[in-house]
Amino acid sequence: MIITNTEEIPGKTITTCLGVVSGSTVRAKHAGRDIMAGLKNIVGGELKGYTELLSEARDQAMDRLQAQAQQLGANAIVNVRFSTSSVAAGASEIYIYGTAVIVE
């Protein structure tokens, strides 16, 4: 599955447009990680637990996006956009959407 955030895929021709597909997830880290992140906030620096949380969430959302596109019979997703928001304290919410297409 080709995934790009451009309109076209260089070197390929889009033959069919199948519509908008999306993948979303909400994930949280266990309470111990939240406490450690709170402590790390005092000195600053990278919050490894949360970096991990967000990349895990993106991977999961990406898998779901691909699963949706596969159901439509697509072999590529173009114009992919990420959006993040906070629905609950300590939880990250990731939403990925794009246009499912068939390329040659």
Partner: peptide, 18 residues
């Protein structure tokens, strides 16, 4: 939120609203 992992209860909320 205590145990971590996918927060399933929020999934339908997000999906429905979008």
């Amino acid at each position: 939120a205590i145990f971590g992992g996918t927060v399933r209860s929020y999934e339908t909320l997000i999906d429905r609203s979008r």
